[in-house]
């Protein structure tokens, strides 16, 4: 009973602390690469409290869909954080299926598309169409990566897949699926090779142009759910890498906790590094980048199917 309470407390601490920490870690990494000191570590929290105090400006064409979908989006991402095993000490639930996770993610994206279309602005409209195109391309990669892990574990339940079994055959599949998830979550979160989150030209953006109409507390909800989604997706791929590592070395529970924190922070630093070193891809080159993610996931699938065939 006490261990359950402790794991829940730990989990809530991680949910509260990690999203702003990841945002500021990415900004810091990027700033250090450009020889700047960068904003303070608490900058995301300052930003959010400022947004909380600000009034909201709403366009006259907006309906209830716009404000409702921001809240709904936040709830869906929170649900995703409860279901996806993005950290080793997450309390487990029954019915945490991989397909449920994929469709909750798709539903969250659907509501953010709906919100940006509802605003009626041209920027929101074309950003929504871009986001829809990207999600169409990246969804197979994300899905196949999770399915490969599922085939490997002979179960579609997420807690069974990420159960730290010491099966030596896991490592290659876990590593490839983790890479596939990392690459597709870069697209999913519209980070650097696909979309530049810090540019000032709305014409080239995807995610930022979608939330252009949001302000005040509505924007706060959007920003917080974005940060949480980033934590969860990076954590998921970090867990894949930890599972690949764990197939070789048996880790005690405390080490797994430390590793899963370090994994998320390491991947966030990697995202910052990618943002500092690369340039945004041309829009027509994006499918090529996504093709690499799909390649990783497909290969993971084939290997896990092949292993299943030899076991029979």
């Amino acid at each position: 009973m006490i261990s359950l309470v402790i794991s829940w407390l730990n989990f809530f601490l991680a949910i509260l602390l990690l999203p702003p920490l990841i945002l500021s870690l990415i900004r810091k990494t990027k700033a250090r690469l450009q020889n700047r000191v960068g904003p303070s570590w608490f900058q995301p929290i300052y930003d959010w409290s400022k947004l909380c105090r600000k009034d909201e400006t709403l366009s006259s064409t907006l309906t209830w869909i716009f404000r409702g979908s921001a809240a709904l989006n936040f709830i869906l991402v929170l649900l995703l954080a409860l279901f996806l095993p993005w950290i080793s000490f997450k309390p487990s639930f029954t019915g945490d299926d991989i397909f449920l996770a994929i469709y909750v993610l798709a539903l969250a994206r659907f509501f953010s598309l709906l919100a940006s279309l509802d605003s009626g602005s041209a920027f929101g409209g074309f950003a929504a169409s871009r986001e829809a195109t990207l999600s169409l391309l990246v969804e197979p990669a994300f899905m196949l990566a999770l399915v490969a892990l599922g085939i490997n574990a002979r179960s579609s339940s997420l807690s069974a897949i990420f159960s730290y079994s010491t099966d030596a055959n896991n490592q290659v599949v876990c590593f490839l699926a983790g890479t596939g998830i990392l690459l597709s979550s870069l697209v999913e979160l519209s980070r650097m090779p696909i979309d530049d989150p810090t540019t000032h030209l709305e014409l080239t953006m995807v995610h930022e142009a979608m939330i252009l109409e949001a302000s005040g507390r509505n924007l706060l909800l959007v920003e917080v759910s974005y940060a949480l989604k980033m934590t969860v997706l990076l954590g998921l791929s970090a867990q894949c890498f930890i599972h690949a590592l764990q197939a070789n070395i048996v880790c005690p529970k405390l080490l797994l906790v430390i590793l899963s924190y370090l994994g998320i922070l390491g991947l966030a630093a990697l995202v910052g590094l990618i943002e500092g070193l690369t340039v945004k891809l041309h829009w027509r080159k994006d499918p090529e980048f996504i093709a690499y993610a799909l390649t990783m996931s497909l290969l993971a699938c084939f290997i896990s199917i092949g292993q299943g065939a030899t076991f029979k």
Binding site: E288, A291, Y292, L299, G306
Partner: peptide, 29 residues
């Protein structure tokens, strides 16, 4: 080229099953 990449992966899978059907020599399949 991206499609060629996926095609080559499918060839990888095909060659895996083909090699399995040819039968094992002493090396790893």
């Amino acid at each position: 080229p991206p499609l060629v990449m996926h095609l080559s992966l499918i060839l990888f899978a095909c060659s895996y099953f083909e090699i399995a059907s040819i039968g094992h020599s002493k090396g790893s399949s």
